[in-house]
Amino acid sequence: MLRCLFLSFLLLITTPLAAEPSIISAPDAFSASSAGEMILVDIRSPAEWVETGVAEGAIALTMHDPAFPKQISALLNANKDQPVALICATGGRTQYVVSFLAKNGFPDVIDVSEGMFGNARGPGWIARGLPLIAAKEAQAAYRSLLK
């Protein structure tokens, strides 16, 4: 029994931990996407986009669409040379999606962890007074990235 516990402990301390996902603040995401250095994707629902607008420079691609896995994969594969960051309302959905993507072959997706409305990691895009665009404009941006 003691030997089994020792082996379990040894396995635990020698097993590498998964890398922490990359995170970025809302102002840094705005700067990078405005400079064309990063693709920013708003994964919230269409109703949320209409209610608040979408982060300027972002494309609107809802995770609530059944086609989202195919769409995000196509976007990532078509833009392998450019970083991609995800933003949602408060960072919960992006944390989940970034983790899921990392486990499925896309380890370099970045999490705008404070989201649009903020949380303990930061006040959020809107409270920081960062610019917004209309949802239709952000949805059209997705289509242009795949051409």
Rank of each mutant, 00 (worst) to 15 (best):
D108A: 02
V84E: 02
L40M: 11
C88R: 05
H64K: 13
L130K: 09
D108G: 06
R128Y: 04
V50A: 13
M38D: 12
A55S: 14
R128F: 01
P123S: 10
G129C: 09
R128D: 14
D108Q: 08
A67P: 08
V41R: 01
I110K: 04
P27R: 02
M63K: 12
I126K: 15
A47Y: 04
N104H: 06
I43H: 06
E37R: 13
F100I: 13
G124Y: 01
P69V: 02
G118Q: 06
A78M: 02
I59V: 15
I110Q: 02
E37K: 13
A74M: 07
L101C: 02
A29G: 07
G57S: 11
T62N: 09
A26T: 09
R121D: 12
G129I: 12
P69L: 00
P69K: 01
T62W: 01
Q71D: 11
T62Q: 08
F117A: 15
I126C: 13
R93E: 03
S45K: 13
I59A: 12
I39G: 05
I43G: 06
S45T: 15
D108F: 00
D65H: 08
V98I: 03
N119V: 03
K80H: 08
G124I: 06
M116S: 07
D42Y: 03
A74H: 08
A47E: 15
N119C: 04
A78C: 05
K103D: 12
V97M: 05
A102W: 01
E114H: 05
G105H: 01
S25G: 03
R121S: 14
K70N: 12
A74Y: 01
I72E: 04
R121P: 11
A47D: 15
P83W: 00
I72T: 10
G53I: 07
D65C: 03
F30P: 14
G118T: 12
L40S: 07
A55L: 10
D42G: 07
S99D: 11
D81Y: 00
R121I: 08
C88Y: 01
D65L: 04
S99W: 01
S33K: 05
K70I: 09
R44W: 04
L75A: 10
G122E: 08
M116H: 04
T52L: 10
A85K: 10
P27F: 00
G124A: 06
G124L: 05
A58P: 15
N77L: 06
E114A: 09
D65S: 12
M116A: 07
